[in-house]
Simulated assay, not measured.
Amino acid sequence: MIEKRPSNDRGSTNIDWLDSRHSFSFGQYHDASRQSHGALRVINDDRVAALQGFGTHPHRNAEIVSYVLSGALEHRDSMGNGNVIKPGQFQYMSAGRGVTHSEFNPNDETSHFLQIWLLPNEENAEPAYAQSDIAQIEPKNGLQLIASNIDPAAPIQWRTDATLWRGSYTIGDSGELPGNGDRGYLHVIKGKLQLGEISLSEGDAAAISNESSSLNLVGLEDSEFLWFSL
């Protein structure tokens, strides 16, 4: 089954410094049918105003990835990491048994990034941190392997039962999405794609479960997307 999840069905948080769209229940947004999909728990599409951000706060037993689309994101945590994440970079933090961190926009322009949480496959592990830059990852059939717990070639080795690819298609590109079709999640960052009979545009997603046929994706416009095999 392929379930389209339109962009305008997402929840939202709008305050003076943050404009966020929630693909799953988060904060004050609650939808019983949007709690998680496999290990995938959160995809927040965040825009943070200049010189604003998330103050120091704790996490525990969560696999957290931020992907910066424009602007910058300054990260600091209780493990001693302090880095500015730039467009095209993925930041990974395994909260494990407990960590505190802050995320701040250090620039005079809006920071736009995706904040992604997944459920860990082991609890109370040692916290960990890593970064990956798409400019350093060789694409194959329009896909770049970002993170995995089963593929040693992935630049990010995380503690969750999922594999993450970043995709980039031009008009007319097509390919079969990797995975066995049992469960997956496609999130469109920009552009327009065709997945089977379903057309997907910016902010749309497709939740896949128990799909017996292959998942063929076609680029209808120049597009960027994330594919989670779950």
Rank of each mutant, 00 (worst) to 15 (best):
G175C: 05
D151H: 15
L18C: 11
L51Y: 14
N124R: 01
G175P: 01
S20H: 09
Q115W: 11
Q136V: 01
G167E: 14
L143D: 14
G55S: 12
S66Q: 12
G167D: 14
G96D: 06
N44A: 10
A207Y: 10
S78Y: 00
F228M: 04
L145K: 03
I189H: 05
H59F: 04
I85N: 05
F228I: 01
A39M: 01
V218Q: 12
V188P: 13
G82F: 07
G179I: 04
L226G: 09
G184E: 02
N8A: 08
K190C: 03
G55P: 15
V218R: 04
K190L: 06
D9V: 00
K192Q: 15
D133N: 15
S20W: 06
Q194W: 06
S199R: 13
H59R: 00
G11W: 07
D151I: 10
G55Y: 01
V188D: 14
D45A: 01
D204T: 07
N105W: 05
V218N: 08
D222G: 09
I189Y: 07
P152E: 14
S70Y: 06
S33F: 08
G191Q: 03
I64A: 03
E63D: 10
I43N: 09
I171G: 02
L143Q: 15
E138W: 05
D16S: 04
T100S: 15
R183V: 00
D133Q: 14
A206E: 08
H101C: 06
D204Y: 10
D46F: 04
M79Y: 05
N216G: 00
P120W: 02
F228R: 00
R5K: 13
E3H: 12
D108N: 13
L69I: 15
S70F: 06
R97V: 08
H57T: 00
L177R: 10
F113N: 03
D16L: 07
T163A: 07
D77W: 15
S78M: 03
V42G: 10
D46G: 11
F225V: 12
I137G: 13
L226Q: 11
I134S: 07
A147P: 15
E197L: 03
M79P: 08
P58S: 06
I134P: 05
F225N: 00
W117P: 04
A153R: 09
R10W: 11
N210W: 11
N14P: 00
G88E: 07
L177E: 10
G71V: 00
E211M: 05
N121T: 12
D182F: 12
S7G: 08
G55A: 09
S148K: 12
S23V: 04
S214A: 04
E126P: 00
L230V: 04
V48N: 00
S94K: 06
I43M: 06
D222Q: 14
F104T: 11
A207K: 01
E63Q: 13
P178F: 08
S209H: 14
H112R: 10
V84S: 08
N44V: 15
S36Y: 15
V188R: 06
E138Y: 09
Y129V: 09
G142F: 00
S214K: 09
G203F: 14
R76F: 07
L193R: 01
H101I: 02
W117K: 01
H37D: 03
E197S: 13
